[in-house]
């Protein structure tokens, strides 16, 4: 079976509405990250809701909202572990280990990187451009643009004979 991909939409083929929605998927995550900082599960739920309401708005929007959703996962997990760890230290160990300090700095760097890449992603999306994050970009591309056998057999309506 040969792997076929849907064609990638070009900037002039996209409506402003699609570009806005694609940009919104990145900006939306920021709002939810800020809200969900103490309990990262909140922003995860918000991200999933946003993804499901937008995935049907065309491949371009689908790609960007998926990339923004899955690229948020590691940051969310890193933050959740950090919060959990901090609480543990506060209640049980009462000792700041080098391991934890290193982890905090690492978490800070990852959050910053996530922030910066999301901004770039939002700007590119607004211009109708594709933008691939490391790993997550490729993963989203595979998930969204790869033709499945289902999508091929969907041609049921034909012009008059």
């Amino acid at each position: 079976m040969t792997e076929e991909y849907h064609p990638i939409p070009q900037p002039d083929e996209l409506s402003d509405r699609e570009k806005d929605d694609a940009m919104g998927s990145y900006l939306m995550m920021f709002a939810s990250v800020a809200v969900g900082l103490p309990l990262p599960i909140i922003n995860l739920i918000a991200a999933i809701v946003y993804y499901y309401t937008n995935r049907s708005k065309g491949l371009f929007v689908h790609f960007h909202s998926l990339q923004s959703l899955i690229s948020q996962l590691p940051t969310t997990i890193i933050n959740a572990v950090g919060v959990f760890w901090a609480v543990r230290i506060y209640f049980f160990d009462w000792e700041l280990t080098d391991n934890f300090k290193g982890y905090l700095i690492m978490a800070l760097i990852f959050n910053l990187a996530y922030f910066v890449f999301s901004i770039i992603g939002a700007v590119k999306a607004r211009k109708g451009r594709m933008y691939y994050f490391l790993f997550f970009g490729r993963l989203s591309y595979e998930a969204v643009f790869k033709k499945t056998s289902m999508s091929e057999s969907k041609i049921q309506n034909l012009p008059p004979k």
């Binding site: 590691p74 890193i78 080098d98 391991n99 300090k101 290193g102 982890y103 700095i105 690492m106 760097i109 990852f110 490391l134 790993f135 490729r138 993963l139 595979e142």
Partner: peptide, 27 residues
Amino acid sequence: MKIWRELLILILIFGLIWLAFTWRPLS
């Protein structure tokens, strides 16, 4: 496959940064 290589790079970055700052914490 490229996608796995990218995942590996990402995990490596994660581990290395953590290790680097654990080894030499910012005073």
